[in-house]
Amino acid sequence: MQVTMTVNGNEVTEDIEPRLLLVHFVRDVLGLTGTHWGCDTSNCGACVLWLDDVPVKSCTTLAVMASGRSVRTVEDLAQGGVLDPVQEGFMQEHGLQCGFCTPGMLMTARWLLDHDADPDENTIREAIAGNVCRCTGYENIVRSIRWAAAHADGAEQQAAPATDEVTA
C-alpha cells in the first residue's frame, strides 16, 4: 500500500507491504542506514528514531503506522555541515567505541536535552535505559550528554565529517 510521510523534512511516497517495519523502511527503502537494526526485539535501542517528535523503537513500529506523520533520523542531527552538540559531545568525551548503539543514543540524548536542558547523571541514566551499549560501560556516554548540555550554544563545534564518512 502507498505511504507518504515526512522524513528529515522531506516528503517521501513509497509503495510498501503493511508488514514492513519502520527500521527496514528507512534503511532499505530510503537508504538512510544511520539508523541501526539491532536486537529486533525492542530491547537494544539501536533503531531509535523520532516519530512525530517522540523517540520510538523503529523495529517495533510498522512503516505504515508512520504514514502521514513525520520521522526524524540521526542523519538529520548535523545541520549545515555542523554537528549537533550531542554528536560533538560523543566525539569529545569518547562516547562510543564500536558505534553500533550510537545512532539510537544520539536520538534519545537529543530528545532528552530538548526537554531538560541540564539533566543530572541519574536523569541521563534513566533516559537512556532503553538504549543498550556493550562497549563503554555508559560512563563516557553520560559524560558525552553532559558535555552536550554544557555546550548547547554550539561553542567549540567542529565541521561535520564528509557525508560519505557519516553513512559508511
Binding site: S42, G45, P55, K57, A129, G130, N131
Partner: peptide, 9 residues
C-alpha cells in the same frame, strides 16, 4: 515498565 522509549508507544 519496559524503558522510556517503549513507554512512549
Amino acid at each position: 515498565i519496559a524503558d522510556p522509549i517503549v513507554r512512549n508507544r
